[in-house]
């Protein structure tokens, strides 16, 4: 039997009918119509489905939608700045050529956001360690790491949120 629940995604309330077994990833994509969040492995290994839940990076492919009531969910679409500008992390990914096919990018960016919110001045080790759950098959990690380092600089200077 479906239940009507409310989910706060990017500050907007979505009223959705879900089964107990529905996964957050499917609800974000199919019911909220937000296609930024990607489905890769579906088993927790690739990080393509990373979203922030109450500010912490979590895997939407292993999360029940019904368990997310009353929580703040942020997807890559939620990073958009006033006037439609890109978020500094997104801009850094563009500037540093850290996007190729782009499939891993939303997850990478959400992981990077989770890291920088907690630790705005990460070391190279911190970046590698905290982004190791995001797999990229095309760009290679060097440019992605450079992009996060560049974003961290903007972050420390301008105090982005």
């Amino acid at each position: 039997m479906k239940k009507l629940i409310e989910l706060d995604i990017n500050g907007r309330l979505y009223e959705v009918a879900v089964n107990d077994r529905d996964l957050l990833l499917d609800v974000i994509r199919k019911k909220a119509g937000l296609f930024g969040t990607k489905k890769g492995c579906g088993e927790g290994d690739c990080g393509a489905c990373t979203v922030l839940i109450d500010g912490k990076p979590e895997l939407a492919c292993l999360k029940l939608a019904i368990a997310c009531q009353g929580k703040k969910i942020t997807t890559v679409e939620g990073l958009i700045q006033e006037g439609g500008a890109l978020h500094p992390i997104q801009q850094a990914f563009v500037d540093h050529g850290a996007v190729q096919c782009g499939f891993c990018t939303p997850g990478m960016i959400m992981s990077a956001k989770g890291l920088l919110d907690r630790n705005p001045k990460p070391t190279l080790y911190d970046i590698k360690h905290e982004l190791s759950g995001n797999i990229c098959r095309c760009t290679g990690y060097k440019r992605i790491i450079e992009a996060v380092q560049a974003a961290a600089e903007v972050w420390s200077k301008e105090g982005v949120k």
Partner: peptide, 12 residues
């Protein structure tokens, strides 16, 4: 604890 899985796994 910090060596388990990934950042996402550890937050869950």
């Amino acid at each position: 604890a910090g060596e388990v899985g990934s950042s996402q796994v550890r937050h869950m």
